[in-house]
């Protein structure tokens, strides 16, 4: 009995005892494929120094190609949502600093305007009235504050642009998840599930508890009460509901989200609107 075996080193003909009896220029379709048990015997033959250089160069080429092809929408979505969360943190930090700093000069503004974005805009546009408890300052001291405010404003704009970009790629890549969960939660689910493929393979109970790993492992280890929801807690349906209904809604929502992930990955039809209506009728 003869078998064919394709290796990075070439195409070989192997007999029943796992010995190489010949080489081929290209794979022969007539010959049977090598059974699993004989592979080990064949691989023993390649453990020689003369083959190492070829193995090295072939593998480098294959791996480089595989890395090049591994990038897809998942990576883009994960990078964008990570940048957005980091931008949020940075903006918050810097705006708090600006509030402290600017309050030396004009404390009433920070007191009256609680919205961060509005506050930064007003620092750049509004002039200080005459009556204030803030200190009088030289122009060069105020200019430094204005510089910081300008940078924060561009960061707000950047975040806005990222959000619209994320919305367009999410709607194209996973329309069902985006419709049911919204852009931010959907992207965060993809981030935690590593990829849409992996997310589609996961059970709904895992999706329900994404982002609550700490509480889940505490529950498994010490027997404390189990968490009811993770990242999907931010969803509007759960936010609006009464406290005692929240666990139930989280369970149903996660169930529907896992269905949506499967629809998106296996290129099914668009059903998220029905699911959304169902949920709203039940719990709305």
């Amino acid at each position: 009995m003869k078998y064919s075996f394709t290796h990075a080193l070439g195409h070989f003909i192997v007999n029943d005892n796992g010995e190489i009896i010949g080489t081929l220029a290209k794979p022969d379709a007539k010959l049977k494929k090598l059974p699993f048990e004989l592979v080990q015997c064949v691989l023993e033959n390649f453990k020689q120094k003369k083959y190492f250089a070829k193995l090295y160069s072939k593998n480098i080429v294959i791996t480089k190609k595989a890395i090049k092809e591994s990038v897809n929408e998942d990576n883009l979505i994960v990078q964008t949502i990570s940048t957005m969360t980091e931008l949020d943190r940075t903006i918050n930090l810097f705006t708090k600093r600006l509030r402290e700093w600017y309050s030396l000069y004009f404390p009433e503004l920070s007191e009256n305007v609680s919205n961060h974005e509005k506050f930064v805009d007003m620092v750049l546009t509004e002039k200080r009235p005459q009556e204030t408890i803030g200190a009088n300052m030289q122009q060069k001291d105020i200019a430094e504050m204005i510089k910081l405010a300008k940078h924060i404003q561009t960061m707000f704009r950047l975040r806005c642009e990222h959000e619209t970009y994320l919305q367009t790629i999410m709607k194209k890549y996973c329309p069902n998840i985006t419709e049911l969960a919204g852009v931010t939660i959907g992207a965060k689910l993809l981030e935690l599930g590593k990829s849409l493929k992996h997310l589609a393979m996961l059970p709904a109970s895992t999706i329900q508890l994404f982002g609550a790993e700490k509480a889940l492992f505490r529950h498994l280890k010490t027997g404390s009460r189990s968490p009811k929801y993770g990242i999907i807690y931010e969803h509007q349906l759960i936010q609006k509901a009464k406290k005692k209904d929240r666990g139930k809604i989280a369970r149903v929502l996660a169930d529907k989200l896992s269905l949506c992930a499967r629809l998106d990955y296996f290129k099914g039809e668009f059903k998220a609107k029905e699911y959304r209506k169902d949920l709203e009728r039940k719990f709305g």
Binding site: F5, T6, F36, L43, K47, N59, I60
Partner: peptide, 28 residues
């Protein structure tokens, strides 16, 4: 790293499925 050290060989594969990379390695 493998480009700098020519006795390291990168193989992008899942270790749970040896059949996916058995055509790229030798006995060890």
């Amino acid at each position: 790293l493998a480009e700098k050290r020519n006795n390291l060989v990168p193989v992008l594969a899942d270790a749970f499925h040896p059949e996916t990379y058995m055509d790229r390695v030798c006995a060890v």
